[in-house]
């Protein structure tokens, strides 16, 4: 954890870097602002939740999503211009999927928003490939014995997103209501809906 002192020091250094780069004509403050705004505007877990709700209510969309995630989410206006490939992995009665990046912090940013701190932590990255059931239990997820667990370690330019199981008793719900049930952790696989 950074103390206030460390934070003030690095904040000063980042400002100095930005000033230097402006002087050299490499960046402008406005350009950096734009980039940050775009980063935040394009990236939200509400996007992933909407994709899941559509898959739960539209079988044809779901099969397209599982076959070619990138093309399917582009139908809904997501991941335009991204060079990355989206692979959606489906949880079923007998299988559970969970996502990690052990080497750094690769994550489907556009569909899930900026990642939570725990996703980037050494504790999560080191353990989930080795003992996923113990890790899932720490998140409060208890899987029935016999469930096949698959851990997807994103080591290249594919980004993984979990398609959670649709909960019982939601038959009458609208797509929007269903999207409201889907949490960020459910899209990573550290929660169920």
């Amino acid at each position: 954890m950074s103390g206030d002192h460390t934070d003030a020091t690095i904040a000063r250094r980042v400002r100095r870097l930005e000033t230097l780069l402006e002087e050299k004509g490499l960046v402008t403050g406005e350009k950096v602002d734009e980039v940050i705004d775009a980063f935040l505007a394009e990236s939200s877990p509400a996007n992933g939740a909407r994709v899941v709700a559509r898959a739960w209510t539209d079988e044809a969309f779901k099969s397209r999503l599982l076959r070619d995630g990138t093309a399917a989410v582009r139908e809904l206006g997501y991941m335009d211009g991204s060079y990355q490939r989206l692979r959606v992995v489906e949880n079923t009665a007998t299988t559970h999927n969970v996502i990690v990046c052990t080497l750094c912090s690769c994550y489907p940013l556009r569909l899930l928003g900026p990642s939570p701190s725990w996703y980037k932590s050494e504790a999560y990255r080191s353990r989930v490939v080795r003992e996923p059931r113990a890790v899932l239990a720490e998140f409060g997820v208890e899987l029935p014995p016999g469930t096949q667990v698959t851990v997807w370690d994103s080591s290249a330019e594919s980004r993984y997103m979990v398609l959670p199981r649709r909960p019982e008793g939601t038959a009458g719900m609208s797509e929007e209501e269903l999207a409201g049930l889907v949490t960020r952790n459910a899209l990573i696989g550290t929660a169920v809906v």
């Binding site: 904040a11 980042v14 400002r15 602002d33 980039v35 504790a123």
Partner: peptide, 21 residues
């Protein structure tokens, strides 16, 4: 694992500047 679900993308303004840079 500290599983607390922080929802803020950045914890300080300088973090956003670093991403922008």
């Amino acid at each position: 694992i500290d599983t607390s679900d922080d929802t803020e993308p950045f914890h300080a303004d300088w973090e956003a500047r670093v991403v922008g840079l």
